[in-house]
């Protein structure tokens, strides 16, 4: 695959109000397979808003977002949801796991929604992903029985469930201690580095942790909703 996995062409997002608020303005962005991109910027600069637009969680007021070459702005919500389910994975600052479900069940949720696998296959895959993230012993625990780092790793496992092209992470280490942050970062780096050549994944991560950003392949700095020169 040679084209960009996600491409934003002049996207702007304005929230209606008096006065209207511009979250991101006229941004061009592309990420190619195998890339680990960090979006940085001060609080309120629009970095999370950009991530939500790239991840089809929000729709730009102007411009176009292409996922794997497909223009998405004209798609209805069901089609966008289907694209999120099959091609994108999300990790949020707050783990956003379903609290009544075990780690296994949370990881299996996207697989069950997508279909195409038997229950046994889904269980096997969910357990393998959890095991690869060092969570084999916690597979049947609910989120409230796990630590913050463990929950975030389960969220990463869930984002990998349907073998997505791109994983979008919004401050995934924002609530974690140094050790857990390092662990999560290593896992993410590993996901990109270990993906097969024919099926290279990409990760885009929003962070204001400059140490974390420094470990990315590329850094995009946002100020006032616009891409700015990356500070040294």
């Amino acid at each position: 695959m040679s084209g960009p996995l996600i491409e934003a062409r002049g996207i702007t997002r304005v929230i209606d109000g008096k006065p209207p608020t511009t979250l991101v303005a006229d941004i061009d962005f592309a990420m190619t397979p195998g890339e680990f991109v960090a979006i940085t910027g001060p609080s309120g600069s629009g970095k999370s808003s950009l991530l939500y637009l790239l991840g089809l969680l929000d729709t730009p007021t102007k411009g176009e977002v292409l996922v794997n070459g497909v223009a998405t702005c004209g798609l209805n919500e069901e089609a966008r949801a289907s694209m999120r389910l099959s091609q994108l994975g999300f990790v949020f600052q707050f783990h956003f796991l379903l609290p009544e479900f075990s780690a296994m069940e949370n990881v299996m949720l996207p697989m069950r929604a997508l279909g195409g696998r038997s229950e046994a296959q889904m269980q096997k895959r969910a357990f393998e992903i959890l095991e690869s993230l060092g969570l084999a012993d916690h597979a049947f625990k609910r989120p409230d029985q796990m630590s913050g780092g463990q929950r975030q790793r389960v969220a990463i496992a869930r984002s990998l469930a349907n073998d997505p092209l791109v994983i979008l992470a919004d401050e995934p280490t924002g609530n974690l201690d140094t050790h857990s942050s390092a662990q999560v970062l290593a896992i993410m780096r590993g996901i990109v580095d270990s993906s097969r050549e024919s099926d290279r994944k990409a990760i885009v991560i929003v962070t204001h942790d400059l140490d974390l950003a420094a470990k990315a392949d590329r850094r995009v700095h946002i100020v006032d909703g616009k891409i700015a020169a990356t500070p040294e």
């Binding site: 949801a81 999300f90 956003f96 929604a113 869930r158």
Partner: peptide, 16 residues
């Protein structure tokens, strides 16, 4: 409501 947002962000269809 938050769980609904989680499910939708993952890509579960609204009708489901």
């Amino acid at each position: 409501t938050r769980d609904i947002a989680i499910m939708k962000s993952i890509g579960l269809p609204a009708k489901l």
